[in-house]
């Protein structure tokens, strides 16, 4: 079994329901996110378009975070999920530095690394990740990539030519796909990031782990 995720960006409307559901399900502390939705506006008035991109851990088959972790706190589950053992983590932040997707953060409460686990605890109970359940337009598709009859496999097959992954050049072999994505949505260097245009207008940078 190899669990994977796919987001159809053509369906996503940026409601952030997934973001909130993840926060609640996993008790993600303030100032940190396992999943977030980024808004990027494209074009010049009146020809403008707003894009929405949910961003989370890519659960790479060749995960840099797993490789750099000195104590195997980051490890693979049998279903392909890159999980984290917070009791073992020493908080060296090597994984934060290694992840090319910026998906790992230091939990300010436990002072250990944390990230999306595809809701491994729910998956173990045969439930879908909370973000999948919360999405009102079924833009999030989750399932077994090894099973050709799974909904994610069928979705990938039916959208061949329009399925992307982020930063393929890093060789991480991510198990998180996007349909309808492009440079603007998937490449952080393809958009301008002006100070003040974030959730906390005056806060442009967050302290790592709540201090330092």
């Amino acid at each position: 079994m190899q669990l994977g995720f796919l987001v159809d960006l053509r369906l996503c409307m940026g409601c952030k329901g997934c973001e909130i559901a993840c926060k609640v399900e996993n008790e993600v502390p303030l100032s940190t996110w396992r999943l977030r939705v980024k808004y990027v506006d494209v074009g010049a008035f009146p020809e403008t378009k707003r894009t929405f991109t949910p961003l989370r851990c890519n659960h790479c088959a060749n995960a840099p975070c797993e490789r750099i972790c000195p104590v195997s706190a980051l490890h693979y589950l049998e279903n392909g999920i890159v999980n984290i053992d917070k009791e073992r983590c020493i908080g060296c932040a090597g994984c934060v530095m290694a992840c090319p997707y910026g998906a790992i953060y230091i939990d300010p409460q436990t002072q250990t690394a944390d990230k999306c686990t595809y809701c491994a605890h729910r998956v173990a109970s045969s439930m879908m990740p909370s973000c999948v359940v919360a999405c009102p337009v079924e833009a999030n598709i989750f399932g077994d990539l090894d099973d050709p009859m799974s909904s994610i496999s069928k979705y990938i097959q039916s959208h061949q030519g329009n399925v992307q992954v982020r930063k393929v050049e890093k060789g991480t072999d991510p198990h998180h796909f996007y349909v309808g994505g492009g440079n603007v949505t998937l490449n952080p260097l393809a958009s301008v990031r002006e100070e003040g245009h974030n959730l906390f207008n005056n806060i442009t940078h967050l302290p790592v782990g709540g201090h330092h």
Partner: peptide, 9 residues
């Protein structure tokens, strides 16, 4: 393309 809403870095 301009990021108009996101979490702080």
């Amino acid at each position: 393309a301009i990021v108009t809403l996101d979490v702080a870095l």
